[in-house]
Design a protein around this nucleic acid. Sequence first.
DNA 1: ATAGGGTTAG
Length: 765
Amino acid sequence: MASLLSIPPSNPNPNPNPNKSKLFTKTSSSFSSAKIPSWISLNPSIASNPSQNGLLENLHLLSLSNQGRFHEARDFLQFMDSSNIPIKSRFFKPLLQACGFWNSIDTGRLLHNHIIKTNGRRNPDGFLGNCLIRMYMDCSCFDDARKVLDKMPDKSLNSWGIMVSNYANFGLFQEAIDIVSEMRLAGFVPDCVVFASLLQACSSPSELEICKQVHSYVIRAGFVPDASIDYELIRVYAECGCLESSVLLFDRMPARDAASCTNLMVGYTRAGKQVEALAVFERMMREGVELDQFVFSIALKACSCLEDRKAGTQIHAFIVKLGLDSDVSSGPPIVDFYAKFGDMVRARLAFDKILQPNDVAWSAIISAYCQFSMFEDCLKMFGHSRKRDMAMNPSIYTNLFQVSASLADTNSGTQLHADAIKRGLVSMLYGESALVTMYSRLGDLEYARRAFELIAKPDTVSWTALITGCAYHGQALEALRLFKKMISCGVKPNAITFIGILTAYSHSGLVLEATECLDTMNSVYGVKPTNDHYNSMIDVYCRAGQLEKAFSLIKSGLFEPDALSWKIMLGGCATHGNADLGKIAGENFLMMEPNDSAGYVLMFNMYASAEKWAEAALVRKTMNERGIRKEVSCSWIRVEGKLHRFIVGDRHHSMTEQIYSKLDELESSVRQCRQVHTRDERSNSVHEERGEQLLDHSERLAIAFGLISMPGNHPILIFKNLRVCGDCHWFTKAVSSITRREIVVRDSSRFHHFKDGNCSCNDYW
DNA sequence: ATAGGGTTAG
């Protein structure tokens, strides 16, 4: 199998505490994992050759712990004990931090015993005591932490402070405040740091009350103004939606700094008040406050949201002047800013300027490429970052799942999925829902269902993804069943959910059900139908051949018909040969979208099938005059991971001879078949009467190649950029019956599962 | 201390 990824070893213990990652990575210790030589813990010979001073053994122990390999760490510690190699005192802190990070309470207790032992059976001193308290708190062992505190001979303000901030971080504010009272009784005076840490834990509106209490306390106790407290208060009030309070505090600060400015601006942008955010930025510029990369990054983001190209370019220029465009903090927003305007060249230039791109920077450029359907570039960028062994994050994978789905690349899709699982980088809900969509768009509805089943608490998006998947595959009843189940699970449908449902009905010809759905979506579920829903309904009528109904819906005044409404109408008229309505629809559509080739093609086919040759010729002439080219029909298939692409009449493939002779063979069997069967109305096509070659339509080439190169019983999966034509649809049905082979075709609007002469679309396409 | 990226549709 062609491998996109060479997968480096993954971490066997994928459950670190996400809340503590900062604490862990920003450790001030000189023994952080980054500083441990890579060959440590890859070197099994340590066990047989104890080093002189025990340093290697200590490093190895720490390396294992930092990686979360605590089984091995404890075994190794046993070996160290039996070899009389003590843990060096300066290693206890980083070791305990690792235990806290990975929630390894067993190893933590073991280390605690070692500390007591090496300390001559006495309780640890203040420094190590604090480390122990932190470790126990990190592992949620509050009583153990308290015992250490109580036994500490030389408690400090900091010891109490650790208890306070950790309780608060767990949301246990009452316990945190109790500790504050206790420490005062014990004769300690809590300082700004303690209160700032309490505030630091507040972030949601439910914690606003606590924030206010602390605020009023620090005022009464005379702690403010204090930069660290002001800063936290501005942040909390902004995050809780009390922007006025944030502004008041900000205005009253003796000296406004970059950090508090950032907090205020973030508050504004989150509340959708980009203009106000930029006003703060301007004011800081005027006041001459020294700004940093964070302020610029949020300011540029505000410009992106406002789609204010001029202001954004000015800020970009400022960033360049200060030399901050190579910074990882201000870099990604620059990438994102230019991507917003579709300027991928500048976006890429901005990315290349970043000296040490991190996961967010890679994510920014990959998602930008994804947004503009530059899927190959996404995979290329991902390949680069893999090669450099860059840090990944869940959102990168979420994007890549979309890429694989769009490229119809099962190979990369499944590999990326496996890769993301190994690294623990399947994003909750976001990534999980993207996987549902990916598998359904790769043609594997069963896998999509399984991916859905794995979601712990599916939300509206997850349900919608699966419902839409069923719609694509023509399983209307299943889509409806899922919808009911979604409702009974208490998950609310949204506008997109109803598009999925309407699509399902449309692809199954359930007109009555669809009209009912359009009614109840507002009356029962409170979701107002938009143009998209009315257009879906037009599609329902059109597919079912009820063109008059579609037309009266357009004229009903219930909504303002847009280009899409007319395009769908035109498509219906072309399929069902109604040139009168089609003329109106076509003219309206071409007026709105004169450069869309599909409109001309539909009109041409419509007139041709109605044998209105003069009109048809006129359409072709107009098309030529306007320089509009028909989109080339293209089909592709993957065999053993390799992509094979075909266009009409393609003779480039190395197996062209075999393909065409296979086609001839199929064609003659199909012809015999056709004489026996009743003639399919829709396939009496225009093509035949115009004497066009049908034998070499791209999907037929792909199917023939698939049959040749993939012996066995697996279904043949074909992807196509346009819709299948009636003739090819009939042909494929026949082939599936003759060869007893299942054939799955994804065209531009849905999936067709051909089996034993039938198609899952029931000839609705 | 502070930010930056992501899910469902025709």
